[in-house]
Amino acid sequence: MNEPLANLLAALDLTDTGAQTSEDIFTGPSQWMPLGRVFGGQVLAQSCVAAMRTVPDDRIVHSMHAYFLRPGDVTKPITFGVDRIHDGRSFSTRRTQAYQNGLPILSMIASFQDVDEGLEHQVEMPADLPDPESLPSPLETLEGVDHPVARYWATERPFDMRHVPSPIFLRVDGEHVAHQAVWIKTIGELPDDPNLHRAALAYASDYSILESIFRRHGIAWSTPDLKAASLDHAMWWHRFGRVDEWMLYVQESPSATGGRGLALGRIFDRSGRLLASVAQEGMVRVPLGGRRE
């Protein structure tokens, strides 16, 4: 198994340190990041795993709502405290708090449900988009760029990402619109554990969702003095899908104001099944000279 994917699996393999007072306690490592701050998707996924460890196997996560409270430090492990808020006949609710140095860095509430029958419908996946195999990989896009962040994007992430119409790493090509799509999958196969795939989907959901805000204003990730951070994150799992197979992450931003932007996302498998919906508000601060309306 390649190193980035092995690191992802290691990060999601939490250590159970036992129940203390009213909480179940778990610990997990922090993955290295070039700027020294823990990737938000990592903490989301680990918080989901911690909550999953406290519910029966026949109850699956269907939604979570989280707030990012403080930046995490990649040099330190993370402690996860899970509060068993409620167990009903069909649903269970868990609150997970992620801590470093005794301070919370993320607070999440997740809901779990028994497998049940019900009404079925979904929105359609966008048609006539290029296949992922026809689009350049991050390694191809960033070839020759000698920068720690570029090297991380190109070779050290556990996910392959192919942007439609093009990535915004270095520049924003084409029309400045508040929407985009990204083909995404892990760079290798994962074990068959369904909860692992659900947690990894939460991990990946934080990667590019704010880019629909950036694209609307012609802002590339390389814009000098760009400051962006996730403030909160909500996710709803609709149907099971494997994250080691190509998925289409469709993203749009309905609004940006007051130094914040809202982004919405839908994740489809390649056959068009809607796997999950995502919403995130982020802080986006750009120097006046960095805007390209």
Score class of each variant (00 low, 15 high):
residue 201 L to F: 07
residue 147 H to M: 06
residue 290 G to I: 06
residue 27 T to G: 14
residue 156 E to G: 00
residue 135 L to G: 05
residue 142 L to A: 00
residue 125 M to K: 12
residue 188 G to I: 05
residue 51 A to D: 03
residue 290 G to H: 01
residue 33 M to F: 13
residue 139 L to K: 13
residue 264 L to H: 12
residue 194 P to M: 08
residue 106 L to S: 10
residue 67 Y to N: 12
residue 223 T to P: 01
residue 239 R to H: 15
residue 99 Y to R: 13
residue 35 L to E: 04
residue 204 A to V: 08
residue 183 W to A: 06
residue 270 R to K: 11
residue 4 P to H: 08
residue 103 L to D: 11
residue 266 R to P: 08
residue 232 D to N: 15
residue 75 T to L: 11
residue 287 P to R: 04
residue 127 A to F: 06
residue 276 A to W: 05
residue 90 S to H: 08
residue 290 G to V: 00
residue 133 E to Y: 02
residue 104 P to F: 09
residue 160 D to R: 06
residue 201 L to A: 09
residue 288 L to R: 14
residue 69 L to S: 09
residue 275 L to K: 02
residue 225 D to K: 14
residue 213 I to H: 03
residue 160 D to M: 10
residue 201 L to K: 03
residue 230 S to M: 07
residue 21 T to V: 11
residue 97 Q to I: 15
residue 174 G to S: 05
residue 221 W to M: 12
residue 126 P to A: 02
residue 15 T to Q: 15
residue 272 G to H: 07
residue 105 I to F: 09
residue 270 R to N: 00
residue 116 D to I: 12
residue 147 H to F: 04
residue 258 G to R: 05
residue 262 L to Q: 14
residue 221 W to R: 02
residue 110 A to D: 03
residue 234 A to E: 05
residue 289 G to M: 01
residue 255 S to R: 14
